[in-house]
Design a protein around this nucleic acid. Structure first.
Lengths: 253, 253
DNA sequence: TAGTGGTCTAGACCACTTT
DNA sequence: AAGTGGTCTAGACCACTAC
């Protein structure tokens, strides 16, 4: 293929489903993403222009633009006006999804384990009340868990939930991730605000993480909102730094 | 205002400029964002539906949708089909932008300072070569800086740049942020992959950060790409954890 | 001058939720 | 049944880049 030629593996898009529930832009973007991640479209390659792609696939230009934009937002493609669209150089990494640690560990083909250290109602402190949007002193559900993978401790997780979740059982928490339990109850997680930092281990954290009692831990504070915009979880977690880190992809607007 | 009424402060949008270079969707979304952050549209409020807003402002529905989508992506609004669009409850925080530490500190009304600890050409190690997409052993620019704010050390920054940036002067690095220097040379930063973790301070880091020599530090590894998709910076930084943390807003797709 | 992405329009139909 | 957001179309004009 000549150096200045453009890529577009048309055959990957032969079986678009116009009747099913999956949006066309999503079918296009996910196939395109696979082609990039697999190397079928190599790093640095230039894509055909939007109008040509739209004609080839029998779709409108806005639909193609939306498919491409999805991958721009994921950091896989870059666009320049007057120039074209190119695949980013360098190996692409997955980005931080809005999942829980439990699912992260599941996906990485390890066996996650949970030990529930505390599970009771407590009055909300000022921090918790502000996070959950309840009154100071109001009863909230407090959960403290030790999370491990393949038997090695990874994190100590402290969560606060509104009182309506008081009927969650300790057994549920031991067999599934918190977010899985909440989703099964109809909670749709939509937005999360996170703050990531570091500090020394405190109290029993060193023992629970099987590290030096004053060693460094990675910390994450999170407020999660459901699709009604209400805060339904406030969490303060600490991670063993040799077992966990956070990866993100940022895209300039 | 009745509880089930919808919000839309029409007067905020009286002066849309259809001739200037600022896109209409951006004018709408930035005004809407201000109204939310200022509390003019309170947390939990419901917006008018898209078609009504479009008619009021004399814009098309896709333009309004795009403006709203910007704020959904920022975590300020949530949308539900069949229901409507609402402001997220709870104080909204700024999100991590694709800026440098220097600019972060500038924006927070403090005086950033830089001490250049090293600035020379070095052969690329395997990690650096992979990050920048150059050959192992190829010469790259190595920069090590101590960053402080109001005289208090905040971070030790190690950066590697392609050899074409060898003419950057130490003086430039001492008076401006690295990204400011690069932008002035025409580099447009577009995508960054970051990995955030924690560890003990190593070597002289304790002295440079004015903390216990074995105390915890927050670490960030970054590969940055320009608008051509090429990697132009590989960095490995460590931060004093009581002086710096990372905030992010995640939105479920 | 030709080609590219960026923006905008004015509709259409659909899926979902509430009444 | 009525109202909402989700998707899709078929154009249009513009700004920017390269030749």
């Amino acid at each position: 293929m000549a150096a200045d030629e453009t890529y577009f593996p048309e055959d990957l898009f032969a079986d678009l489903d116009r009747t099913g529930p999956v949006p066309l832009y999503y079918q296009v973007s996910s196939r395109l993403e696979s082609a990039i991640r697999s190397g079928a479209i190599p790093a640095g390659a230039r894509l055909e222009n939007e109008i040509a792609i739209a004609q080839r696939l029998g779709l409108s230009r806005p639909t193609i633009r939306r498919a491409i934009q999805e991958l721009v937002d994921k950091g896989l493609l870059v666009r320049r006006r007057g120039i074209g669209t190119q695949v980013v150089q360098g190996q692409v990494t997955r980005q931080v999804e809005l999942t829980s640690l439990y699912e992260d560990l599941q996906n990485s083909a390890h066996t996650p384990g949970t030990r529930v250290l505390a599970h009771r109602l407590v009055p909300a402190t000022e921090d918790v009340a502000r996070g959950l949007g309840v009154a100071v002193g109001a009863e909230v559900v407090y959960i403290r868990r030790q999370r491990s993978t393949d038997g090695i401790p990874v994190a100590v997780l402290e969560n606060y939930l509104p009182r309506e979740f008081a009927d969650i059982t300790t057994e549920q928490l031991e067999t599934r991730g918190l977010y899985q339990v909440l989703r099964a109850r109809g909670v749709t997680i939509r937005v999360a605000q996170q703050k990531i930092g570091a500090r020394r281990a405190h109290g029993d954290e060193g023992d629970l993480l099987d590290i030096d009692g004053a060693g460094p831990v990675l910390t994450m504070e999170r407020i999660a909102f459901d699709n009604t915009g209400r805060a339904f979880e406030y969490g303060h977690h600490c991670y063993r730094p040799d077992m966990y880190s956070f990866e993100t992809t940022l895209v300039a607007k």
